[in-house]
């Protein structure tokens, strides 16, 4: 029971954390905590096979799948805090608490009798005994799950498959389209500008400066911008002024540029 009393508060805290963290990645990590703790509890409950499966299948495979999807969807897709359905959060909390209360009260009213223990059932090892059950009594259910898994795999493939409705654009066509777009909308023909390279600071999270001294939004990754880790040009404005002052030249044009960038930010 020691393991239980240590792990139970951790699990409840982690589970509550899932409710409140804003970022999906954090939720996934908290879920991993709950699942690994569960695996330990399984071990404590004489279920070594499920202990392994819980870690390998749940924590390993399923959570990885979640993380992959998060990556595809974009880590910047965090929840907005504003509730769209009126009263949903309050009601959900009230009804959820009520449900939990009813369950706990109900359970506390039940007497569970003496615990038999699995010593006898696990005689000769937990895994062989489980296998005995799975391949005799539950063999049909077991075989059916294989059909279910195959169906799920094929279903996922079908869902993820995107039908190509137009022929693939070749290089010549791409070039022609870009030129046409340039003619129509004035969109830049060439590649996007690389991030800024400064004398004292050289990184991908720093926007490049255009010939007129303004920062180019297009030069840094959109993901970095979403994360808010981009070093913005205004942040460096002080530096620039400092450098200009050191150089002893009156940088008359600078402040105007800074104001522009502030507006953009």
């Amino acid at each position: 029971m020691t393991a239980f009393w240590i792990l139970a508060p951790i699990m409840v805290a982690a589970a509550l954390g899932i409710l409140f963290v804003r970022k999906a990645v954090h939720a996934a990590l908290l879920l991993a905590v709950v699942m690994i703790s569960l695996a330990v509890l399984y071990a404590a409950l004489d279920a070594p096979f499920l202990f392994a499966v819980q870690i390998i299948v749940y924590t390993g495979a399923i959570l990885m799948l979640f993380l992959f999807v998060l990556m595809l969807v974009g880590v910047d897709a965090s929840d907005s805090v504003v509730e769209t359905i009126r009263g949903q959060r309050l009601l959900a909390t009230v009804v959820g608490l009520l449900f939990g209360l009813v369950l706990v009260v109900g359970i506390s009213q039940v007497t569970f009798g003496t615990v038999v223990g699995l010593d006898k059932a696990n005689e000769g090892g937990n895994v062989p005994q489980l296998a005995n059950l799975l391949f005799s009594k539950y063999v049909f259910a077991f075989e059916t799950t294989s059909a279910l898994l195959i169906t799920a795999a094929i279903g996922a493939m079908v869902l993820a498959h995107r039908e190509r409705l137009t022929p693939k654009e070749g290089q010549a066509a791409q070039a022609a389209r870009r030129v046409r777009e340039y003619a129509d909308t004035g969109r830049h023909l060439g590649p996007l500008p690389p991030p800024g390279v400064f004398a004292r600071h050289n990184a991908v999270d720093t926007p490049a400066l255009l010939p007129d001294g303004t920062a180019s939004e297009a030069s840094v990754s959109r993901v970095l911008a979403a994360r808010g880790t981009v070093r913005s040009a205004p942040a460096m404005a002080d530096d620039i002024d400092e450098v200009q002052r050191q150089l002893g030249q009156g940088g008359a044009a600078r402040p105007a540029v800074d104001e522009d960038e502030e507006g953009a930010q």
Partner: peptide, 28 residues
């Protein structure tokens, strides 16, 4: 029928409470 899955789930939970209560009443 507002189209929000979550509000459907809420009524589902309400139903679940009723079922649990009914079970408790019957069994206890």
């Amino acid at each position: 029928q507002n189209g929000f899955v979550r509000s459907y789930a809420l009524s589902l939970l309400g139903g679940a409470i009723l079922v649990v209560l009914a079970l408790l009443v019957v069994n206890l």
